[in-house]
Design a protein around this nucleic acid. Structure first.
Lengths: 342, 342
DNA sequence: GGATATCATGGAACCGATTCCATGCCTGGC
DNA sequence: GCCAGGCATGGAATCGGTTCCATGATATCC
C-alpha cells in the first residue's frame, strides 16, 4: 500500500521529484533518479493508475466491444488485440454484446460513458451516430473492425469482392450450377456481412451470364448449420448443384460432412469453397478465401494508438486483402471432365 | 466533462450532498435527491470511476487471466464471466496468457499489481504461491476455475472421476480393447487436466482387471489433432481397438472423421466417447461426458463477489458435476453383439 | 418540557498521483 | 563580475469524487 509519498520520504526528496524520477518527465539528476528508483524498488512501490488517470485523463486502457467470443474470427481478433495492446502497455476491457442484446443500452450508458478508456475498438458492432458522437465528445478515438462506421476509421475486408472471387473460382473451373449457402439477413450482425457476400455471389453469377435467383440458401453461421442445410439441400439428387459457395469455412465444413454422409464425393461430384482461412480448413482440404483476422486486430490497435498519440485525428481506414487458398475441395465439374476425357 | 461540483452547484447543494444523493449512501431528503438527480441528468453527468476508486479503493472491475480465448471451453467460460460480471456492474479486463508465455511476468508485475481490480479470476492458470501472496497482500480476492490453487477457492470438475466414468461407460458396454487419446503432459496447461484424465482412464481399466499400459496416445487438444492421431492409430486393422476414450470432444470429432475416412463404421466397428458437451457433439452424435463451463463461470463470479462483499473471506471451493450424455457413437463391440445374436 | 435520537446538510480532509510555478544553483558568455 | 539560461528541486494546486465531522432542525419519549 505504499504511495509515492513513501518513496519520496525514503529517498529524501519531494513528491514532485519522485514523480519526475519515476515517470521520466522533466529534469532530474542521474543520482537522484537512481536513489528514487532504489527506494521504490525497496518498498515494492507500484503507481496507482487511478490517481494518475485522474490528473492526466489517460487510463492506459482500451475498451473492446464484440458480439461473439467463441466464434473463430472473433476469437482470433480478440487474441491479437489483447497481445498488441499489452505490448503497448494498455489493458483491454471486454464487452460482449451479441446482436440485439438487451444489455446494449446498459453497456453504453453505464460503462462506455464513464471515462474509463482512452479509446474503443468495435469489432463488428455498428455504432449509431448518436453513440459515435457521444464518444467523440469525450474525445475518445474509436476504430472499427469488420464494417464501416460513419466518420470512424475502419479495418475490414471487402466482403463483396471476396465473395465474387470465391464464386469466380468456381466459375473458372467450369461450374454453372452453383449455390450460395450463407447467413440469413434476419440474424445478420450489425454490418452487412451476410448480404455483402450474397451480393458478391450475385455479381459474379450475373457477370458470367447466369441467373442467381433461387440459388441462395440460408444457414446458421456454424458447422452444424451448414450440415443441416447440406442434408436438406443435397438430399434430392436431381436438384443438386455441382458447386457450393459457403459464406464461411465453418458452414463449408458442415456441407462437406453432409455430402460425405450422403455418399457424395467432394470434389468429384461436388465442389465446395468457403471464406475465412479457418485453421481446420486444412484438415477438410477446403479451398477457401483466407482473411487474416490477426492482421486486422494488429492494424486496428496501431490505428487507435496513432489516433491517441496525435490527439484524436481521424485516422485512416484500410481494406485488407484476402487470398485464395486452393486445396482439394474444388475441381472441374464431373460433366466437364467427362467431356474433356472424350 | 461535467463534474459532481457542477451538479451540486446547479442543484444548489453541497458536493457532499450531491454525492450522497447520487450514490444512495447516507441521509438525503427525497426532494433534494430528486433535485440532484434532475440536475445530473440535465447536464449529462457521469461519475468518474477513477476518482471514486481513488478514495473507496474499489474499482468495480475484475481481472480475468485465461490461457486461450478461441478454444471452446474457454470461450464459453469467458462469455459467462462477462455476462455475470456485467450484471453486477463490474467491468472485465482480460489477460490472455498462453502456457509458458513470455508475457507472464510482465502481466503480473506490471498489470495485476496495479490496484486496478477488486478481484481476479484465474481460468486454468495456476498461480505460484508468491503470486497468490502478492494478491492476498493487496487484499484482492481470487477465484480459480479449472484446477486447485493453494488457499484459493476454486470451481472445477473432477477430471479423474469424469475420465473414469467415460471409460466405465465403454467397459459396461462390453469393450475390453480400449484406447485413450488425450493431451500430452508436455504441452499440459498449468493444471493437471491431461494427466488427471489419463489417471481416471487407468483407474477404470485397472478396476476392470485390464492393463492400461500402452493404451495411451498423445494428441493435440483439437479436432485436427484427433484426426491425425486417428489416421495413424486406426490405419492398421489388426491393432485397432474397439473403443476410444478421447480426452475432449474436439479430439473425438477428429477421431470420428478419421474413422469415417478409413471406412470404419461408428459405432458398429468403433465406439468413441469424449468429454466436454461441445455444441457440435450433437451433430457428430457423440456420446460425451458433459461439463458445464457457463455454470462454472457463473459460480466463479458469485464466489468472487461474495468474497468481495464479506471482505476477503476465504470462500468455498466447488466441484461441479458432469453428466453422461449418451448418443450413438458408442455401442457394444461387434464381437459381443455377434455372440448375443447366436 | 427537556433530553435524546434521527434526519439533513455543509465544510473540509483525503485518496495518490501529476504538474505548474517559484526558487536557487551552476555554468558560460561578454 | 554580472547576467542569462539551463538544470534540479520543493511547495502547492489540482483532478473528481467519498466520507468524516460538526451543526442544526425535527421528531420522540418519559
Amino acid at each position: 500500500m505504499s504511495a509515492i509519498a513513501d518513496v519520496a520520504r525514503l529517498a529524501g526528496v519531494a513528491k514532485a521529484t519522485a514523480s519526475r524520477a519515476l515517470s521520466g518527465r522533466g529534469y532530474v539528476s542521474t543520482e537522484t533518479r537512481a536513489k528514487v528508483i532504489a527506494a521504490a524498488r525497496q518498498i515494492g512501490y507500484v503507481a496507482s493508475p487511478n490517481a494518475a488517470s485522474l490528473v492526466t485523463g489517460r487510463t492506459q486502457s482500451v475498451g473492446v466491444i464484440i458480439p461473439y467470443i467463441s466464434r473463430w474470427f472473433f476469437g482470433e481478433v480478440l487474441e491479437s488485440l489483447e497481445l498488441a495492446l499489452l505490448e503497448h502497455g494498455y489493458d483491454m476491457t471486454l464487452y460482449n454484446l451479441p446482436p440485439a442484446s438487451p444489455e446494449r443500452d446498459r453497456v453504453f450508458e453505464f460503462f462506455l460513458a464513464r471515462k474509463r478508456f482512452d479509446g474503443i475498438i468495435s469489432v463488428c458492432v455498428a455504432l449509431s451516430e448518436q453513440e459515435v458522437d457521444q464518444l467523440h465528445r469525450l474525445r475518445r478515438p474509436l476504430v472499427g473492425i469488420g464494417g464501416p462506421i460513419r466518420g470512424v476509421p475502419t479495418i475490414e475486408i471487402d466482403d463483396v469482392a471476396a465473395a465474387r472471387l470465391a464464386t469466380e473460382h468456381l466459375l473458372s473451373l467450369g461450374h454453372r450450377d452453383i449455390v450460395h449457402v450463407g447467413g440469413s439477413q434476419a440474424d445478420e450482425m450489425d454490418f452487412q456481412v451476410h448480404s455483402n457476400r450474397l451480393r458478391g455471389f450475385e455479381a459474379a453469377m450475373t457477370a458470367a451470364g447466369l441467373s442467381a435467383s433461387g440459388c441462395f440458401y440460408a444457414s446458421e453461421f456454424t458447422m452444424p448449420g451448414g450440415y443441416a442445410r447440406g442434408l436438406a439441400l443435397l438430399g434430392d439428387p436431381r436438384r443438386r448443384p455441382t458447386a457450393i459457395f459457403a459464406a464461411s469455412d465453418e458452414i463449408a465444413f458442415g456441407l462437406i460432412l453432409a455430402a460425405r454422409e450422403l455418399g457424395i464425393r467432394v470434389p468429384t461430384e461436388l465442389s465446395v469453397i468457403g471464406i475465412d482461412g479457418h485453421p481446420h480448413s486444412e484438415m477438410f482440404r477446403l479451398t477457401t478465401l483466407a482473411q487474416h483476422p490477426r492482421t486486422q486486430g494488429q492494424l486496428a490497435v496501431r490505428t487507435l494508438l496513432d489516433g491517441l498519440a496525435s490527439g484524436s485525428s481521424v485516422g485512416v481506414s484500410a481494406v485488407l486483402p484476402t487470398s485464395l487458398v486452393i486445396r482439394s475441395s474444388t475441381s472441374a465439374p464431373r460433366v466437364l471432365r467427362a467431356l474433356k476425357a472424350e
